[in-house]
Design a protein around this nucleic acid. Structure first.
Lengths: 275, 275
DNA sequence: CGCGAAATTGAACTCCGTCAACATCGGTGG
DNA sequence: CCACCGATGTTGACGGAGTTCAATTTCGCG
């Protein structure tokens, strides 16, 4: 699982967790950034629960998630937890945290995961020597900001029910984009506690909402599979507009208008980075 | 107010609104990014309420805030508003929105403001030709993400009172960093409605919290001046750690440990970008 | 089979939103 | 200089969305 070829290998091997329905593809990972990292990063396989970044400590590396998922979160003084985002294949962990003397957040693998880790000084060097990488990462950050903002909107102003529906829809689209979800279902390795901590809700209330949605025939959870029975309705309940997950290609930024349909984000950019 | 020298001029001229107490300084703005933008951007003076970015429309320019303040927000289907962040001098507006066919948010000037606007294609070109600019903007985005994340934590898991205190503290530090606040007071051109929409609270409840804080001798609002009477206590109530507003210098990222104290962020980087 | 984690449900409670009225303030026109 | 007016600030009463606490069940896994 170590070595410089792990990135490419990952694109051909089925992820052990977050098992895909369709042929296991990791589209976003095959890009300039990933290729460059590939040359200098050390790829490891980590068990679930491995702490990639520890709040309060210096974070000196950045990791690209190749397979599996991770959570970025903060524990408050009263013990409550706020999960900030869910990292999927193609996302970076540690970019945020490494800018501070003390990492403001923790990042922990949710599943068995393989990650490519690069020392911070080396990343800085890469940015210096590969201008296009820096620009790509910059533009990617805009998408990451969008996802966070959308979460803030949901937590700040959406009622709990809408919030849950929105979250489930976002996860569907994000997982679809990395080939880990089919048309209307995906594997959800999240406990209800995690979902509650993501959405700023209590566990019992989240559970009730989930039951309501199930009773109304919108979604079901079987094992860890989430099945959306009424996509249209769930999307309506969620007030979900998937546009914010579909950035224009960087090439399109050069023109006044986009070339192709924005629905297909050219599959060229990486996903997002966190931590 | 137009022309290529406006940026430098701004550093010597007192901002008409957001009046500074100490000598009017705009430290963060004097950097590589600002200098480069200076060459190609058009600097304008905008009245309060001018919409820099309109939700749902294509955003084809990015603007650097030189003087004044702006708000980035979303209006929900039921008419509610969530303010995502407050843009201060040194912040960019539109970086996020311009990545999408339809801008996901609106940005509106809060005060009289002067902004340097650059067409998106030109910015893309600059990133291409000036690698260090891209890297700087990339690292800046990490700070922007941190601020958003911190807001999400507050809205998701902090009780209203703590949330308000935290917000007031954050504003204090941010304004101090651009020379617009003194030791424990600043001018706050925000209505209570805006603060409520920032923190996901209702106006009456926010008002009550403000009254409580005032009755307890923690803060006062006179005219539009916010005066913190008990900084220690407010900070404690807020569970406020200002570290997340003080990134390491990019130079420090090259080493395992920082060179100077992180409390002084080398004053070299730009602030944040939004929209 | 048995154990700990996670899911589920109920009941009581409370933080915070909604609604509505009123006060205050800055500006504007007479 | 005063009357007026819309926007903002302030307060009270009430209700409800969501939390807390606690118990029970189910599930995953050894």
């Amino acid at each position: 699982m170590k070595g410089a070829t792990a990135l490419k290998a990952a694109a051909q091997r089925p992820p052990p967790h977050l098992t895909p329905r369709s042929p296991p593809q990791l589209p976003a990972v095959v890009t300039e950034a990933a290729r460059l990292l590939d040359l200098t990063a050390v790829t490891r396989t980590l068990r679930p629960g491995h702490e990639l970044v520890s709040e309060g400590r210096r974070c000196a590396t950045v990791s690209l998630i190749i397979e599996g998922a991770a959570l970025r979160y903060r524990i408050l003084r009263d013990g409550q937890r706020q999960i900030l985002n869910i990292l999927l294949p193609g996302d970076f962990a540690g970019v945020v945290s490494c800018r501070f003397e003390n990492a403001p957040y923790s990042i922990k693998t949710l599943t068995l995961a393989s990650v490519a880790t690069i020392p911070l000084p080396r990343l800085v060097g890469l940015l210096d020597s590969h201008p296009r990488l820096a620009a790509q990462l910059f533009w990617r950050s805009a998408c990451e900001l969008t996802m966070l903002a959308e979460r803030l909107i949901a937590v700040g102003r959406r009622p709990a029910r809408e919030r849950v529906a929105h979250f489930l829809m976002e996860l569907l689209v994000r997982l679809q984009m990395v080939g880990l979800a089919d048309e209307r279902s995906y594997r959800l390795p999240l406990t209800q506690e995690m979902v509650a901590d993501t959405l700023g809700l209590s566990i019992p209330y989240l559970n009730r909402i989930l039951r309501d949605l199930r009773d109304e025939g919108l979604v079901r959870v079987k094992n860890q599979m989430l099945i959306i029975d009424d996509l249209r309705e769930l999307s309506a309940v969620a007030d979900f507009e998937q546009g914010y997950l579909r950035p224009l290609s960087i090439a399109d930024l050069l023109r006044g208008a986009p070339t192709g349909r924005p629905g297909i984000p050219a599959g060229k950019d990486l996903e997002s980075f966190s931590g």
